[in-house]
Each structure stands twice: as C-alpha cells, then as structure tokens.
Design a protein around this nucleic acid. Structure first.
Lengths: 143, 143
DNA sequence: AGTAACTGTTACGAATATAATTACAGTATG
DNA sequence: CATACTGTAATTATATTCGTAACAGTTACT
C-alpha cells in the first residue's frame, strides 16, 4: 500500500483534532515525520477534492473543510492510492503459446481489482473521526 | 502486495493444469517469466507446507501434492505475503508529546491488520482450481 | 513598496526495496 | 562418475520510494 494514504489520513486526523487551528506544512510534516514538500503534495490533492482548504502567503496553512465524521478512509484511499494493492511485477508473458503464461497477468489483474474493492468496503466503515477516537483509546490504554 | 504471492499462485495453477506432469524450476521460471532460483525459493516454501512435492536430482522437479479445488488463495497469501499490505513507511513518532503523533503508528497498524483480515476473507473464496477456470474463461473470450 | 512567511510544483539525489544473477553444496539417475 | 536437478546464500543490478533543494506565485504585515 502507498504511504501517501498514511500521510493523508494522519494529516486529516491532526486537523480534525483541532478543527479551528490552521496548520502549516512545516507543522504537519513535523508531526507526521516527513518533509514539508511531501505534505504539501498530499495536501494539494486533498484540497482539490475539498477535504481541506489551503491558504497561501504569510500566516497561511491548511484547515479542515469537511465533516470528519462523514469522510471515510475509502475516499482517502481512492484519492491517494487506488491501484496500489497490485504489485508492480507481473508474471507470465502475453506472447507465449501456453494458455497459463499468456493469460495469467489478466486474471491476476482481475483478482487484485476485486480484492481492492473488498478493501474499499472495509475502509468505507472507518471515518476520520473514528480514527481520532482510536487514537484517544490507545492513549487511554497507555496509563 | 508481495510479488511472491503472484509467483506462488502462477506456479500452482501451472502444476494444476497438468497434475501428473513434473516441472523443473527452469520450465516454471520460463512460464512465469522470472529466474529459476527465485522459483525454487518460492517452491521450497510451498513444499514445506505440503502443497507441492520436490524431487531432487536428475529427472527431478516439482509436482502438485494437494487438491487444487481445496487450496485457497488465502492460504497462499498467508504462506508468502502476510503483512505485506502494510506500507514499510510509518508516520508519527512515539517520542513526541502530541497524542496524534505518538499513537498514529499503532492505530494505522491496527487498521492495516484488520484490512488484511478482510482481504484474507476475499481470498478464501478463491481456489487454485477457480483461478485455472478463470484462465480458461479469458482464453475463451479471446476467440 | 518591501520583506517575511507561506503554498504549489518540479527536478534531482539518496536511501531502500526488489528482482536477477551467480555460485556452489547436496542429491538422485542412468 | 557424469549429468541434471533442488536448496540456499551471497552478490549485483534495477526500480521504487523518500528526502531535499529550488523557485515561482501569493498573502500579510509594517
């Protein structure tokens, strides 16, 4: 799975944690533990889909512009990582005579596509708000 | 997803296609389109779990030793690729004060584990025999 | 107007993961 | 005892991923 999914979810949860607080890419990057430029890239994607608003210029940054209890991880997966369940490497060879060799890539492609749909079904059940809830639960258990 | 899963499934389907035919790692590697040593590594794993039998020495190779209509892709996934759905990269940092930063890795870990269980549920429904059936279907559609 | 603090985006280098290849010990066959 | 295999580890090559730098464009503040 694509790690941009992780960055996107982390950033949205962070923004949902303080809904009225504007966060710069520097602040988010520090929290997520990556580079600000990478955060900006992911956030630009989330902005285009309306999940966050970006403000350029001095005093700017990102702020949540969605209801975190309505946004599911399935949407975020679709936005950032669709297709990433399938390995880059493909077996077989369409040029071969053998029925197995020349059709296996197609069939595995089908299977990975269906597997991804099932994965989306699971992610559909989880909202950003629920992820924040889980964070609180884990924090509670630490004590 | 780990590409060894693909190699394992491809090899098993190939062996199921000709159940009484012994195939060398060279033959399988040519069909799968990879290196014989890689095939042997994956097959050694399948052998230890009883899915195939290996015969060393001249005239040796691999032969199926399971019922392909009983072996599901979930078993193969477990054997070759468990944990591979989770990206290697982890966000957050356990040393930070922030509740989000220090617990996000744990929570994402939970989520990926659950996602993998759902994935296994889907793969459980697919047998090696059914994959072979799909190959035949795709071949049919070509004409 | 000018400076500082941001985002948006691209390009490139570094680190990491993955696959191919080589090598060789061990084993069965004829 | 030569040949044809598996089993396995080590090494090299390649692809992918991540970090970083650079800079144009935008806004706020003085």
């Amino acid at each position: 799975m694509n790690s941009e999914f992780t960055i996107a979810v982390h950033s949205l949860v962070l923004l949902a944690y303080r809904p009225d607080h504007m966060a710069t890419s520097d602040m988010i990057a520090h929290n997520v533990c990556t580079h600000p430029a990478r955060v900006r890239k992911v956030m630009a994607c989330l902005r285009k889909l309306g999940y966050v608003k970006a403000k350029e210029g001095s005093g700017g940054g990102f702020i949540l512009s969605c209801d975190p209890s309505q946004v599911t991880l399935a949407e975020i997966y679709r936005a950032t990582s669709i297709g990433s369940i399938k390995p880059g490497w493909c077996s077989g060879d369409a040029e071969q005579e053998c029925m197995i060799a020349c059709n296996m890539a197609d069939v595995m492609g089908q299977i990975f596509t269906e597997a991804e749909m099932h994965l989306l079904g699971f992610l559909q059940q989880l909202t950003i708000q629920q992820v924040l809830g889980r964070i609180r639960d884990v924090q509670q258990d630490r004590t």
